[in-house]
Simulated scan of single mutants.
Amino acid sequence: MDISGTPFRAVRAALFTAVVVTLSTASHVLLSGVPLPFTTVAAITAAVFLAAFALAGRERGFGRIAGVLIPLELAADTVFTTGQHACYGEAGGPVTGPLRQVGLDVLCGGGGVGAPLARVAGGSERAAALLAGAGPGAAWLLLAAHVGVGLLAAA
């Protein structure tokens, strides 16, 4: 049975996308305490699916998989964080004023993904206090965690 055909590639890419995007959004919301905009999650989902579908044609080794996954994970985290800041502000509250009139409603429309998880995480006050007290090593620790997750996913 040949598993390299287009239908099987699409199914593998869809399953990979579902697992990766679900874990990524859940962990991002839990750690930040702020929901993600629906359009941001939809854009990352489409990008992950397209990359997975394009690369699902043949078997690849650990190094090549890690070489794709780690930059994609860092990019997804950057997009998620940017979406959160654009739609919910630095402190996790709604953005008001002239930004709403320039089309931010389109970007932030559709509700927040993971709002119940954000409530479980304790809200943005705790996350803001944690980040305010973080030293310069916290950024390196966060980068190391993302690289570690990318390596684990590649394995």
Rank of each mutant, 00 (worst) to 15 (best):
M1H: 13
D2P: 12
I3E: 10
G5L: 05
P7E: 09
F8I: 10
F8W: 15
A10W: 07
A10H: 05
R12V: 01
A13V: 09
A18Q: 15
V20T: 12
L23T: 08
L23A: 10
L23P: 14
L23S: 14
T25H: 14
T25S: 12
H28D: 12
L31E: 04
L31H: 06
S32E: 10
S32L: 02
S32F: 03
L36F: 01
P37E: 06
T39E: 05
V41P: 00
A42H: 06
A42M: 06
I44Y: 01
A46F: 13
L50N: 14
F53L: 07
A54P: 06
A56Y: 04
G61I: 11
G61Q: 15
F62E: 00
G63I: 14
R64N: 09
I65V: 15
I70D: 01
A75E: 12
A75P: 09
F80C: 03
T81A: 10
T81V: 15
T81E: 10
T81R: 11
T82F: 06
A86D: 00
Y88W: 02
G89F: 02
E90W: 15
E90F: 09
A91E: 13
G92W: 02
G92Q: 05
P94D: 04
T96W: 04
P98V: 07
P98G: 08
R100I: 07
V102R: 14
V102M: 08
G103L: 05
D105L: 12
L107V: 14
G110L: 13
G111H: 11
G112H: 01
V113E: 03
V113H: 04
A115T: 05
L117D: 01
A118Q: 02
V120Y: 11
V120E: 15
G122E: 05
G122V: 04
S124L: 01
S124W: 01
R126E: 14
R126H: 08
A127D: 13
L130C: 14
L131R: 06
L131K: 13
A132K: 09
G135S: 09
G137Y: 04
A139F: 03
W140L: 15
L142C: 02
L143W: 09
L143A: 10
A145R: 07
A145L: 12
A145V: 08
V149G: 06
V149N: 10
G150E: 04
G150Y: 01
G150M: 05
A154C: 05
A155I: 11
